[in-house]
């Protein structure tokens, strides 16, 4: 909606609640919450990580402008939504990815997943996750060749190394612990700080958690999705006899739970729906991690639940206060 149209809006009955918050403000605040993790990715993966970040963000912005031009809509790069999509997409890529991969991913994320469905606010699926899923099945080898963190920013050596979840799945936990001198504390510490191989933004659970708590504190997200999501993962890990702390800190759980599953547009709008959404995301994540063909299930879990979000909203709609209960409507 343009600035002029907003001012023409006529509202009738009081009370009126005024809020200073706009879409672009939310988008930029969420991006700011990801800043620590962004800086960490440059610290852990060196210039290579930075280049992937910048290329992904730039191509997302370019496709945003291109798509809006094509459909004759005002170009709104400054609202930060394409910037945020680019940031999240880059967070899901390995540092040593060939640079055409993020460009294709950005096209799928912005032009197909967002603008074909009517632009910001109408997309059914999380754009960054669809971009990621698309490039994962298009270039499975490049997308699963992970780079170990570099020793210093100027180091040029690239060592490829499997992610902790990958090692745990293929060789078992014992093998993984060997990498950390057999000490669980050492493993947890590395997962928390980010001294592990993996996607650019998902390595440091602590920094993502700080960003997520910041958003919770600012009330931009509520606990209804992330808490059931994370709690379910921990409970399933406990019940099935796996290491709950490892499953909590490894992979993209923090990033997914706080920054992707909480998307206003692609998740359910009702509170009850959000809790069900979170629990189901957690169950699917653990199902894929423990039994599936992929080592990490957060992305697919959220995408699958995105499909169900409109249905959850329909089934768990709250009754309007004061409404007479009609015969079960044939919905």
């Amino acid at each position: 909606m343009s600035e002029a149209a907003q001012h023409q809006l006529i509202v009738s009955v009081s009370p009126h609640i005024k809020s200073e918050e706009t879409v672009s403000q939310i988008m930029w605040t969420v991006s700011a919450a990801l800043l620590p993790a962004f800086l960490a990715s440059a610290y852990f993966f060196g210039p290579r990580g930075l280049i992937v970040q910048l290329v992904t963000i730039a191509s997302c912005l370019a496709f945003e402008a291109f798509s809006q031009k094509v459909v004759n809509k005002p170009v709104t790069l400054s609202d930060g939504s394409a910037f945020l999509t680019g940031l999240l997409l880059a967070f899901n890529l390995p540092a040593n990815i060939p640079l055409y991969v993020p460009i294709v991913g950005s096209f799928v994320a912005i032009s197909i997943t967002k603008h074909l469905f009517g632009g910001l606010g109408y997309n059914i699926f999380n754009p960054a996750l669809v971009g990621r899923a698309f490039v994962l099945i298009s270039w499975p080898r490049q997308m699963t060749t992970w780079m170990a963190p570099v020793s210093s920013f100027t180091s040029v050596d690239v060592v490829s190394q499997a992610t902790p979840l990958n090692v745990a799945k293929l060789d078992g936990m014992a093998k993984l612990l060997e990498q950390f001198d057999g000490s669980k504390i050492q493993l947890y510490k590395s997962l928390l700080m980010g001294q592990i191989s993996g996607s650019l933004g998902e390595t440091s659970a602590l920094l993502i958690l700080i960003g997520g708590l910041f958003l919770l504190f600012k009330k931009y997200i509520t606990w209804h999705v992330p808490v059931p999501f994370i709690a379910t993962v921990v409970i399933v890990a406990l019940v099935t006899g796996n290491d709950p702390v490892f499953h909590l800190l490894a992979g993209g759980l923090m990033l997914g739970a706080f920054f992707m599953a909480t998307d206003y547009v692609t998740g359910p709008a009702t509170r009850r729906g959000q809790i069900v959404f979170g629990v189901m995301c957690g169950l699917l994540t653990m199902l894929i991690r423990l039994k599936g063909g992929y080592p990490e299930g957060v992305m697919f879990a959220i995408l699958i639940m995105n499909c169900f979000a409109p249905l959850l909203d329909r089934r768990l709609r709250t009754t309007t206060f004061g409404a007479v209960k009609k015969k079960e409507a044939s919905t």
């Binding site: 094509v70 459909v71 197909i112 997943t113 603008h115 074909l116 469905f117 009517g118 059914i124 699926f125 669809v130 899923a133 698309f134 099945i137 699917l284 199902l287 894929i288 039994k291 599936g292 063909g293 992929y294 299930g297 992305m299 697919f300 879990a301 995408l303 699958i304 995105n306 499909c307």
Partner: peptide, 27 residues
């Protein structure tokens, strides 16, 4: 966008749901 209204978008949506369902592969 007008050219995608209705059936074309339904096909795109089906493709994206299929993409999400690849997560079940190998279960």
């Amino acid at each position: 966008p007008a050219p995608f209204r209705g059936m074309p978008l339904a096909f795109v949506t089906t493709g994206l749901i299929a993409l999400a369902f690849t997560g079940f592969a190998g279960l």
